[in-house]
Amino acid sequence: MIEFRGVTKQFPDGTVAVAGVDIVMPPHKTTVLVGSSGSGKTTLLRMINRMVDPTSGQVLIDGADVATVDPVRLRRGIGYVMQNSGLLPHRKVVDNIATVPLLRGTSKAEARAHALELLDTVGLDRSLADRYPSQLSGGQQQRVGVARGLAVDPNILLMDEPFGAVDPIVRAELQQELLRLQGELGKTVVFVTHDIDEAFLLGDQVVIMQQGGKISQAASPTEILANPADDFVADFVGANRGKRALHLAQVDGRSVVVDADGRPAGILAQ
């Protein structure tokens, strides 16, 4: 479990990225931080592995304040996946995946063997192991990034807009893949995105953040749609428009669900 207690981050230039955040991210669930740029979602994520230290307040992992843990040690125990994969371009795929186990002192042979298994886990062919990242497609690089994040079997997996730079088709594929993996592995995932659809698809808990680093609402996707906390949230999730503003139309005695433009979205199951 990850817990933020009254966390504020003000950068030296005066910008307040995160303002007085209290939030609990439950274990074995996916928490998605969503908001437009400048809402402090990435800063919030980076405070978990001490890439950023809060100006005030506490971040706790299973009750222990992360400020008391050596950052390098802490990071070696937390999976991290970022946009554009962040793979080391001078290391082969297999060595990229084995990076953290090697840093933690696992033998090279063992780390490489495990890396090959992880290629299977993320649905990549083992023949890619000896390639360099630049020889992979964007989607494949992201899969390798996920494999690397999972390499030490961490309890916590931080994902910073991991699918932000791939095309929509690959993105949908990767999202499904993450849902499958999460179903099997049950990590405590913290996922950052600016895409509310992605947030609703992946999140058990969705945290909607607004400018100035404040949380507008943290709840399940269903709860947010049913009871948006304020106008900002309602507007952000588009509860009153487009494909979310569904209503029923009766056709030959059956209820058809149509969207705001009158286009059919499906049949109401009885």
Binding site: N49, M51, V72, R73, L74, R75, R76, G77, Y80, M82, Q83, N84, S85, G86, L87, L88, P89, T99, V100, L103, R104, R148, L158
Partner: peptide, 18 residues
């Protein structure tokens, strides 16, 4: 050297000298 790569190296748990 790409900043993204350096940030990700830090996130992996490399020390500054490493």
């Amino acid at each position: 050297v790409e900043r993204d790569v350096l940030q990700s190296a830090t996130a992996m748990g490399y020390s500054t000298t490493g």
